[in-house]
Amino acid sequence: MAAGGDHGSPDSYRSPLASRYASPEMCFVFSDRYKFRTWRQLWLWLAEAEQTLGLPITDEQIQEMKSNLENIDFKMAAEEEKRLRHDVMAHVHTFGHCCPKAAGIIHLGATSCYVGDNTDLIILRNALDLLLPKLARVISRLADFAKERASLPTLGFTHFQPAQLTTVGKRCCLWIQDLCMDLQNLKRVRDDLRFRGVKGTTGTQASFLQLFEGDDHKVEQLDKMVTEKAGFKRAFIITGQTYTRKVDIEVLSVLASLGASVHKICTDIRLLANLKEMEEPFEKQQIGSSAMPYKRNPMRSERCCSLARHLMTLVMDPLQTASVQWFERTLDDSANRRICLAEAFLTADTILNTLQNISEGLVVYPKVIERRIRQELPFMATENIIMAMVKAGGSRQDCHEKIRVLSQQAASVVKQEGGDNDLIERIQVDAYFSPIHSQLDHLLDPSSFTGRASQQVQRFLEEEVYPLLKPYESVMKVKAELCL
């Protein structure tokens, strides 16, 4: 049975990233139509530049190519590739079939990587351009969430054990800070992308030097003109047959890092959902379990974690691919890159769409948070109580021993009897502590235990987050809708 299948058929496997999760716009960027249309555009740009620099290419040939950029006979191309065992030459023939007058000058002087690699770089750039505003929107939604809850005390956790208090907004800023680093890295790697350009079979530009009869300047002009037509500021000066596969490492490393950030955020949300302090959106008709109707599973956060793990592992592909590119190139890269580049971007696209949807509907339960604080705060307040007693004339050592005994009794009630923490009640009825009984409410005010959390939130948002989001103001209103 021949390899390949009808990918629109229910009898043929289709990647869930495309069929179930990723956005239509990201799927289109990695589609065959987008790819092969870009090949034709690159052939047109090459012909236009070659004509401008004096090669015998007519206006009629150029116009014929322009008129057929979208006229792609995919069936013919597939048949040609089956016959020739070469995808680029299959599309040269297919393009030439609908451009008979231009057929002889299509791909003039070029090698397969002229269309293959340059198209990949265009796709990487455009895919990054799709991700950047999506990530900015996630940051914006979380920034709104953090600002609104900047002063809401909550129990902090280290080692997932109760620690000092923080605020809900401050905790959210930990998430935002990681995503801001990801946004900066995505922008950097996007701006650092260079075009492969017009380089020939081993990167020496020998074929173009021959076409222009040894004119170095025209060869350099050709490279520059096509690079500018493709919208790049610069091209690699040095290439082998391909652009260095280190570029793929750079791009997928940034995406993998984004995956790590999203995994951490969504894990926190899942843990908070278990504590009943916070939940992701839950639709009115949504079913959490087929057997347990009360369940409210954090399905979206779980999906993000599941896909983020996949995204983090994909960076190993370009690392290994770059390491086995012998001399000017081997074909070890080809099949692998067809999979890992598309999957990385479709996965990143999915987790950003999902995280935006989550961040637009996060639900906080202040009463649950308050109750958990009441359970733990008495123990945390013991040092403040000791200091207040010393100020009232008591002995630190005597007070410490009193607190120690009462704390152990209260802990026994919590752990052995399943009761509430009654340390404060014990202190309130103990005559030894009568000098500070009137101060206990103040000493137990949760806001006095959150330090500068709310001020940190305000400063972080104003100095770091809002300036970073400013270039994306025009796209901030787009909502994230999930079908599944």
Rank of each mutant, 00 (worst) to 15 (best):
P10E: 15
P10T: 15
D11T: 13
S12D: 03
P16R: 10
P24C: 09
M26R: 01
C27Q: 07
V29N: 10
D32H: 15
D32G: 11
W39L: 03
Q41M: 13
W43C: 02
W45M: 09
A49F: 00
A49G: 08
P56Q: 11
D59F: 12
Q61M: 12
E64H: 08
N68K: 09
D73R: 06
F74I: 15
K75A: 14
M76R: 12
M76K: 15
L84A: 09
R85Q: 01
R85K: 13
H86L: 02
H86M: 01
H97S: 12
P100L: 07
G104I: 07
S112E: 00
D117T: 00
L121A: 10
A127P: 00
R141T: 15
D144M: 15
K147N: 13
F157G: 01
F160T: 01
A163M: 08
Q164M: 13
L165M: 07
R171T: 00
Q177L: 12
D178L: 01
L179I: 12
C180G: 11
K187R: 12
K187G: 12
R190I: 09
V198G: 08
T201L: 02
G203L: 01
A206T: 09
H217F: 11
D223G: 09
T227F: 06
A230Y: 01
F236V: 07
T242L: 06
V254K: 09
G259K: 01
S261V: 03
I265W: 10
M278R: 02
M278N: 02
M278Y: 04
Q286M: 01
S289P: 01
K295L: 01
E302F: 08
C304I: 15
M312G: 06
T313S: 11
L314H: 10
V315L: 14
V315A: 08
F327H: 07
F327K: 06
R337K: 10
C340Q: 04
C340I: 09
D349M: 08
L352N: 01
N353L: 12
I358L: 15
S359R: 14
G361L: 08
I369F: 05
A388D: 04
M389S: 04
V390F: 06
V390I: 11
K391T: 15
G393H: 04
G394D: 12
R396Y: 05
H400T: 04
V413C: 06
V413I: 11
V414Q: 02
K415T: 07
E417D: 10
G418T: 05
D420K: 06
I427S: 04
Y432H: 10
L443Q: 04
S447W: 12
F449H: 09
R452E: 07
V457C: 12
L468D: 02
K470G: 13
M476I: 14
M476S: 15
V478W: 15
A480V: 13
L482V: 12
